[in-house]
Amino acid sequence: MNVHAIRSIYRFEMARTRRTLMQSIIAPVISTSLYFVVFGAAIGSRIPHVEGISYGAFIVPGLVMLSLLTQSLSNASFGIYFPKFTGTIYELLSAPVSYVEIVVSYVGAAATKSIVLGLIILATAGLFVPLRIEHPFWMIAFLVLTSVTFSLFGFIIGIWADGFEQLQLIPLLIITPLTFLGGSFYSIDMLPPFWQNVSLFNPVVYLISGFRWSFYGIADVSVGISLAMTLVFLGVSVAVVAWIFKTGYRLKR
């Protein structure tokens, strides 16, 4: 185990966050605050309580998830794409580090950033609406699992991407729609029955549902299924990363 390498990469990546504090932390906090102003205060005041919870409070878990997913993806994909783009990846490939160590350090750093960000957004939300967390352990568990899973997914995108456009493509075309349609701003029950069924094919529904359950004890789907689905995504991401390193896909010539 090359602990020095893991520490070096992790610190390198965390230093990158400090340099880009504006983009990494402050921007998501501002955009989340805007959501609260628009959906929580302006529109939310006209929306009745959802399952006994004020609308402003109801959207908190969804908003945290929204930032968590997009930031995990962009952090992790950029972290590994940039060395590929500049060519500095030669050093990583020629270093005595195993693939597991590379993934642990890059994905670990990206997930750390997302978790910190998620907690900051949660604290920001606390300024707008009263927060209640019924299952703190599970709240943290979903936070960590989701950050790790989507950081892995971002890592895959970063390796796959051949240009900055592709780097943006999947987050923009797939993740953002899935998140918005995944119940960030509403309960699946509010949809007509047909769309409720369609929503069950949206993986993000399970993440948000499970996360919201850890706050308020209410869920669109049972928490067991949410957890199982999250673990399935994690497993799939791990398998894809393993395949990438086994074949050297887009890394080695």
Partner: peptide, 8 residues
């Protein structure tokens, strides 16, 4: 320093 750590 990063390189040194990377090489263990």
């Amino acid at each position: 320093s990063f390189s040194r750590g990377l090489f263990g």
